[in-house]
Design a protein around this nucleic acid. Sequence first.
RNA 1: GGAGCGUUGGUCAAGGGGUUAAGACACCUCCCUUUCACGGAGGAAUCACGGGUUCGAUUCCCGUACGCUCUACCA
Length: 506
Amino acid sequence: MNKKVRVRFAPSPTGGLHLGGVRTVLYNYLFAKKNNGDFLVRIEDTDQSRYVQGAEEYIFDTLKWCGLSPDESVQHGGNYGPYRQSERKDTYRQYAEQLIKDGYAYYAFDTPAALEKMRHDLKSEQNPSPQYDHTVRLQMHNSLTLSAEETTKLLADGVRHVIRIKMPVGETVSFTDMIRGEVKFDTSIVDDKVLLKADGMPTYHLAVVVDDYAMQISHAFRGEEWLPSAPVHILLWQYLFGLSNMPQWAHFPLILGPSGKLSKRDGAKYGFPVFAMNWTDPTTNERVEGFKEKGFLPEAFINYLALLGWNDGTEQELFSKAELIDKFSMERVHSAGAKFDFEKAKWFNHEWLKRCTVADLLPKVKQLLAENNILVLDDTLLAKVIALVKDRCVLLTDFVQQSSFFFNAPESLALDAIKPKWNEEKHKFFVDYIEKLNLENWDATSLEDAFKALATEKNIKPGELQLPLRIMLVGGKFGPPVFDIVAMIGKEDAAQRIKKALLQFS
RNA sequence: GGAGCGUUGGUCAAGGGGUUAAGACACCUCCCUUUCACGGAGGAAUCACGGGUUCGAUUCCCGUACGCUCUACCA
């Protein structure tokens, strides 16, 4: 039985893709590629009430940005469609009926009110959330307690009903998780999960199993939050398709926020993104910032996410996608959750920015500047600026602050930093310095020499003049060495900025 | 409440019966830099607790504590 490796990612179109989701995709993708297998994406849209317009497209956009596009999906085609669960609706019912026929499931006609009553009546301190399980199913309104005739009649009358799995009592279900080893459950403690809803749609439990079978999935990977419902899925495999056809499982650890599980809210709360890309919920208009827009390189984003729960056992931290594919192994994925650290994420971005050549960066920075209303006409100049400024940028967006003043004079100057120590001598110095700008050799060193010579002549420490010069040219206390800036922006521009600044002192 | 999963510095983590318990981020100090960074050199800081097993446990076993997830006609 040498099945081809086929793994799937199954997002539900209910919102943006957050960190945990992207990492799940990433590990699925890496595993598939490592084993020359297929990576497919299917959409879990069986809960139409929660379907959000645009979410599906957003998911594919995110995958594309991350460089994790699937081999098969609604967007990419493939031979295992449909790739939307809602389009397979009829199949699920057949399997559910089959389970009933075989004695593994039953019809349940309980109204929502009846369910609520049951939960209310049974609720106690010892049992805060009563389940629909073997202890109560014989008191409920279902095909186990009704006669065959009654059941048939209700069905014929079109009474709303669901199909529930009949969990066996006192059996042990176990399976081998690729990350956690053998995991066991006592079937008595798991409830009779709904498999087919009253609207005819399957729940996730039925759908994963049927879909994974239909799509010939060889390895089923998902987040740790699914572990408790794994016994339902194992049993379904056993009843429907046989354990020998069941994929291998792995449950990934959770990604935690600063306090507990990472949630959508944490982004706004702690000032870092939790989604890969900007996401605006069309129903609430709530906007969540993405790593992309924050200025992350996809390579860095992927790299950090991969390391959050996995490493190759060496000291290496920087991995390209190709290296990740090469080195990845499911056995080295941790079983414990990891806390997301934005500072470390930024460090990865910085490292990847350093790995970029000026040519790599040029189009990105050019576009970024354009978005900030800075038009760059001269690519050669921009290339020089990028080379000069590159090391001090951690995020792509840092290039805006670090390089905009090369193209446009600063709009406001941080004068507070120099005003207290300002005096008439310094003012005169700069008036004269403008004249000294007529140099034969227009380069940073000559500029600096001329500057220092004049300072000495006027008996002022050059150090006390450099910060004012910087602020006149740049607007604030940042940027590359000040004479590099003068050299770059040219005589006219430099003179003009100094004059303009001098005006603000009088 | 129950079930499952987990627990090496503040964070990510390597290691796996005998080690000075790697490395990275963050933090602190110094150097470089008369801006802010980058970079360089150092520093502080860790095996949750209690029992076993053993000549020896951070490592293996059992408990306890704590954390997380699930406990929906959501995925």
